[in-house]
Nucleic acid binder design. Structure first.
Lengths: 166, 166
DNA sequence: CCATATATGTCAACATGACTGACGTAAAAA
DNA sequence: TTTTTACGTCAGTCATGTTGACATATATGG
């Protein structure tokens, strides 16, 4: 194995390194959410609103059930925040074309603006981290995180191949 | 720049890639916490208890204030879960030696056992992801995540140098 | 020694975001 | 036509966070 040839212990499986992985995830998530939380508070919204706005922006005309599958919360929980966002005109609903039971969700201009404002900060943060770490590190970051995501959802992250593509 | 020489766009800064980063973090965190949540529920505990148990296990004899700084919650919030854990004998408190106002926190045997049970799953999950991604990817994972962590807390993650060390 | 600052705890009230369970309606599908 | 599906809603509960006010013991500095 690598360690025999190179004199490296398989450190990446050691307890300490694993724990650091857990903690990195905790600290990164903690700090990553704190920025938008402040903005959301100005609107009287919370993190749940951010998630809804984000994924509706990301998948225009998403249905309620698809959104529920992403968020993994109950419809009652979603209903509350979604209802607010619709009433306050950040999101519009319209019946599906093929299936008129569906409510296709879409951001209004107001919604797009808020989404931009919220996610811009996070993207900036991520961009800085990417830049500082370098392209190769980003590949690794993606690879490991993808391994932590449930099989079923990995398809959401199309591979771009190793580092470079045409 | 790289793109001129190699024909690569600086893709790692593109909107799409940044968004995938945000989402990877969301999905990974979502799935990463769901495992222990089930176990915690059996004890009538929640995620907050896990965090306390984890960091007390990680830093034996940690003080309440140090724990508060890690968790970034109010002492009232901590007090509730910590109180439960102490009453149910997962954690012991004893006055500090130098400063007797402090309450040094430590896991009991029962606490160690629960911590192990909870974190074992997560470590297993992380180990699998590490193994599948490879050592180099793990370095990248660490690098990027560290860049997302607030300056002040980066010292918690001593660098092991680039991939290999003696 | 005394005043002040610190470490911690506690009570009360409240908001958010999750949950379960039950029930309702409209539309699709069998 | 019956059943299933997509979605909504009401009601109640729980976990976890918040603020504000106040209490106590101990440390620390003048």
């Amino acid at each position: 194995m690598t360690d025999v040839k190179t004199g490296i212990n398989p450190l990446f499986l050691r307890e300490e390194e694993l724990r650091q992985g857990l903690e990195l995830l905790f600290f990164a998530y903690r700090d990553f959410t704190s920025e938008p939380d402040a903005i959301l508070a100005e609107y009287g919204f919370g993190r749940a609103h951010h998630r809804v706005i984000y994924f509706v922006g990301r998948h225009p005309d998403i249905t309620v059930s698809d959104l529920l599958e992403i968020l993994r919360i109950t419809k009652q929980s979603l209903s509350r925040v979604l209802g607010q966002l619709v009433r306050e005109k950040f999101i519009t609903q319209r019946p599906g074309l093929k299936d008129r039971r569906q409510r296709l969700l879409e951001l209004t201009e107001k919604g797009v603006e808020l989404e931009r404002q919220l996610t811009e900060r996070q993207r900036g943060c991520m961009a800085r981290a990417y830049r500082e770490a370098g392209g190769e590190a980003v590949e690794g970051f993606r690879k490991v995180l993808l391994g932590l995501v449930e099989e079923a959802d990995r398809g959401r992250f199309p591979s771009r191949g190793p580092i470079r593509r045409g």
